[in-house]
């Protein structure tokens, strides 16, 4: 890397920073309970809830920091926060 004029940065380049390592609890979907309301995707501060082709969602554990907002707000309690084990 050489420094760009004035420190100009490329878009979306924090993707190299895998914040998933910060996590203590990991969110896990119970797809039987999920009603595909998209609230978890909407509220995620880390853009770590990805839509699947079947309308359900999955977590991107590369970036999920385990804040638990998704689990707290899920209207059907379809997300469980599970302690990360080393």
């Amino acid at each position: 890397m050489t420094i760009t004029l004035g420190g100009v940065c490329e878009p979306g380049s924090t993707l190299v920073n895998k914040t998933g390592g910060w996590r203590t609890f990991r969110p896990v979907f119970d797809y039987d309970k999920c009603i595909k309301c998209k609230l978890c995707e909407l509220l995620c501060p880390d853009m770590s809830v990805d839509a699947r082709d079947d309308g359900f969602f999955e977590f991107n554990y590369d970036f999920c920091k385990g804040c638990g907002i998704c689990a707290n707000e899920c209207p059907t309690d379809a997300i469980e926060m599970v302690l990360e084990e080393k």
Binding site: L15, T19, D46, M47, F63, K65, C67, G68
Partner: peptide
């Protein structure tokens, strides 16, 4: 707004 930012969990 892309992932990988350094905001606190729950920011």
């Amino acid at each position: 707004l892309q992932a990988g930012h350094r905001g606190c969990a729950g920011c």
